[in-house]
Design a protein around this nucleic acid. Structure first.
Lengths: 213, 213
DNA sequence: CACACAACGCACTAACTAGTTACTTTCTTG
DNA sequence: CAAGAAAGTAACTAGTTAGTGCGTTGTGTG
């Protein structure tokens, strides 16, 4: 009986990518403290030794996963091209996008929570995050200005406060969906509940920003 | 040389209270997974054995700390006596209270985050939390109804959605204050920043709820 | 093809950690 | 005041975990 031993293909990039994907899952599921390096290696079908070879140590790996997560959401935001829409439509699109991104990428929320538990000490060492956000705040600032020119937005709204609020009303609902479903005795993740929440959020922001909501 | 050995005073209640206070701090600082039972014992100036004697195990201790935290905030809310104020003033008082409670009790936020990371599995075993919240949602529902009667609030607002939003706009800002201060390049915890945020939050809710904001 | 380097894997360690065992000290009550 | 119950302690165990030393295997290049 001729046994065909499957030849091991070596691919550093693919291994690193598998490790990063596995690390993202594990960190999101259990937080930095609860995550297990062995579990990441297993999930990635890689040897634990490779994690230390490519990424240094557990905390550095966490930092890189976090940087990737931030880069991903900001990249997706840039792709919205809000400049090409009337200000009102652009704002609604941004609210919908933020909600749907959190919904489809729940690990983003958990990673950010974990980083804040650690007082953002990994992100502090990063450096390349600030630029991403500067551009983003600028984008929302420009949108607000344009809306004022069009006569549909109230003047004087701080783009940072608005950004925070748009994120908050989606983020809080989703990150606390487990305790929330318990204490309010309704399934916050039921499709109708999600729709209802998005509508409520759009109305909240529109009433805050628009001249005639 | 006569050594006066300080007589050890025994007080089960006091020891339990010290353990609970220490556990709250440690769980809030490091999450359930990151918290160390030895550290809790040290902080409480108690022997680790006492923790297991009084509270069973680490997870049960976490559950009790969490129950206490929820009971504390709901008790403080009951004490607001919103019924005795005009609806508009009552709503503003509730927004201010929520913000200030989170600000003064940051461990509440971290405990809730940690519980949601674990899909609320400790609170599920509790049972006595639902009643607390039922009363709270009822209170806000009554306030909304009264505001409609007074002609100051819009009708048809869901008290649960409103509750969630009032919590969200404060909670998100504070739980993500570390990454937030980094990415927005401003100190979100500076006194002026906190005042500004509270004002923004009050305006957000008032515009959502009131007929003439 | 040979050789050097990069990718990969095994098995180990040193430190840590939740929980326990076996004991001493203090308090309470018949 | 004796004796048992309750409060408290120290040292230990069994299992876990981040990180590593060192050897093996595949691969691109001269």
């Amino acid at each position: 009986m001729a046994v065909k031993t499957t030849r091991k293909i070596r691919d550093a990039d693919a291994t690193q990518a598998r490790i990063l994907a596995a690390a993202k899952k594990e960190f999101a599921k259990n937080g930095l403290g609860g995550a297990r390096v062995d579990e990441i290696a297993d999930r990635a079908k890689a040897n634990k030794r490779m994690i230390y070879h490519y990424f240094g140590n557990k905390e550095d790996l966490f930092r890189i996963v976090l940087e990737e997560a931030y880069t991903d959401i900001r990249t997706a935001e840039q792709a919205l091209e809000l400049e090409h829409l009337p200000a009102r439509d652009a704002l609604e699109k941004l609210i919908r996008f933020t909600w749907e991104y959190y919904l489809k990428n729940p690990e983003f929320i958990t990673l950010v929570n974990s980083e804040n538990l650690h007082k953002a000490r990994h992100l502090k060492k990063s450096g390349k995050i600030e630029i991403l956000f500067k551009r983003f705040v600028g984008m929302v600032g420009a949108l607000l200005d344009r809306g004022v020119e069009e006569g549909v937005f109230r003047p004087g709204i701080d783009p940072v406060q608005l950004n925070i609020t748009i994120a908050a009303i989606g983020y809080y609902y989703l990150t606390n969906r487990f305790t929330g479903s318990l204490v309010f005795q309704r399934d916050l993740m039921a499709p109708e509940a999600l729709e209802e929440r998005l509508a409520f959020n759009i109305e909240t922001i529109m009433r805050m920003v628009c001249v005639n909501p």
